[in-house]
Amino acid sequence: MTTTTPSSSSLSIAHLVIPGQVIATSSSNNNKSDRFLRGHGTYVESSSNKGNEERLISSVCGIIHRVNKLITVIPYNESIYKGNVGDLVIGRISSVSSSRWTVIISNSSCMKDAQLPLSGVHLPGGVQRLRTKQDSLNMSTFLNIGDLICSEVHKVQQNDGGSLSLHTRSHKYTKLENGILVKVPSCLIARRKSHILSMINNKIDVLWGVNGNIWLQRANTTSSASASASDTIADLQEKMRLEHSTTPISLEIRCILARLRNSIECLRIVHTMCTPENTESVYCKSLQLETTMHTTQIANMLLPENIILLTNEFRS
């Protein structure tokens, strides 16, 4: 076996590699069973000048993890969102093609766009049926370019550079309207049990997308006036969504939304985890500051001296 790995001798010591660094080399003439296996965060390059040598090269900055012949590099800092099945992600539709929507889910250009197939959405009316040609013609009436959606990662395509396929087959996942989108680096969002939370005395619904997009909207109140007994759940959902998107937002709610947005921005600027708890605590602190010092208006939260005051307890 001609495989040489720097990490082979001592597994307890973490080996840090940088992108482009050769992790292992092997000659491809050898028996196939002798060669290493390419894991996440690595790629194989065969150099022609030195016989048929194959080199395993790191593609990210991180720590080598090795299980027998499988060599992976675990990224040190996941600033680029890497999808996991089941993640809640918030993205923007960038194009509509014959049977799928393309969704931008990452702010950086290195991330591939995700796909949302027509079969991955609930059609209006909520009936389960085959998608017809007519449906694919009407796709842009369901979701058009520029629309924001909240969806779940359905599949991670392994052979396609890790591109994601999404679905919205649940009442939780809808088109997002009448609210604010806040973008943070994805590493500041922790995975938790539930990513849809009510905050600020249940006045605001917050959707924490694992890809770093956070959506803030007024809480969806169920008004019984418009609901009739014959409605199915799907009809009710549709009605609620429509009601939510068409009701104008009061100035009071708008101020709360702006303050909450600035709280998240404060945490982003100091590069601290944007958890709901942290956000709510910054929010409360800014309210306190306003009453005691009479100076902190909502916009002033983002002045450097105020950011320092507000995030004091989170910066270590």
Partner: peptide
């Protein structure tokens, strides 16, 4: 949403 906020004098960032 943004335009209505500007009209009401409370923009997205307050």
């Amino acid at each position: 949403f943004i335009i209505e906020g500007c009209r009401d004098g409370c923009r997205v960032d307050g």
